[in-house]
Amino acid sequence: MDVKTFGELIDWTRDLHAHLARCLSHGATHNEEERARALLGYLAAHESEMERIVNEFERQAATKVLDTWVYDYQSHNPIKTHRTCDEPYAKLDFNGICREVFDFHDQIIYLYQTLVGKAAIPEAKELMESLLTMEQNEFQRLVRQVGRMDDL
């Protein structure tokens, strides 16, 4: 996706969460390991919720902010995740799935951290800070929940 504005950035991250949710859900039906299937189901639900939360940020943001240009976005490396849902999550074990999903969230957090300092107007900076805080909090919650699953 060609991201030029903060609105497009939010669309893009929302779509990434939605895509990841679909891939995780697909993997949950095809993974042979019971623990991995349970993890994939939980993560798919979490990513769907993240999609909803990010969408709500966009819905509540002022048009002025959403239309503000994102400077230096092109210099940021694209977020890496399994871009197709053919097999990857179905073949990963519990720890491999955790590494992949945690890395995905680390990349989004890094993107938001980078863009906080590049916002041209205070309202855009505030929006990026709010998205960053939400992503960090949700990531911490995700890590705690997955840690509990790993204890079982």
Rank of each mutant, 00 (worst) to 15 (best):
D11K: 00
N137T: 00
L66G: 10
H46S: 15
L115T: 09
L9Y: 03
Q136S: 09
C85P: 02
N137A: 00
H19V: 06
D151R: 13
Q136E: 14
G147H: 07
G117I: 07
L127R: 10
A124N: 12
Q107C: 03
R83V: 12
S48P: 04
R52Y: 10
V70Q: 02
R144V: 14
T133K: 15
R37Y: 05
L115I: 10
R52S: 15
E123V: 11
E47Q: 12
F94M: 06
H19R: 13
A36G: 06
H105M: 03
G96Y: 05
D103I: 01
A28F: 03
L142F: 04
I10L: 14
H26T: 15
E58I: 03
Q145E: 15
C85D: 13
H105C: 00
G27H: 08
P78I: 06
E32W: 05
L39Y: 08
F104D: 01
R14D: 04
Y89V: 09
K125M: 05
A44I: 13
R35Y: 04
Q74T: 09
L24H: 05
L40D: 08
R148M: 15
L111K: 06
T133I: 11
I10G: 02
H19F: 11
L142S: 04
C23K: 03
K80I: 13
I10F: 09
A18M: 12
A45P: 01
Q60E: 08
H19I: 10
F104R: 02
E138F: 04
S130N: 14
N55Y: 12
A18L: 12
L131T: 09
T29C: 11
M50R: 07
T84W: 07
A18C: 04
Y89W: 10
F104E: 02
P122W: 04
R99T: 14
A119L: 07
A61Q: 07
R141I: 01
G41D: 09
L9E: 01
H105I: 00
R22W: 15
S48C: 10
E33F: 06
M50D: 08
E135M: 12
D72C: 02
K125V: 02
E138R: 06
E126F: 05
P78R: 08
H30P: 03
L132K: 06
C23P: 01
L152V: 13
N55K: 15
Y73N: 06
V101M: 01
W69M: 05
F102R: 11
I97G: 02
L9A: 02
T5E: 09
R35W: 03
R141M: 06
H30G: 02
R99L: 10
T63H: 07
P88Y: 04
Y71M: 01
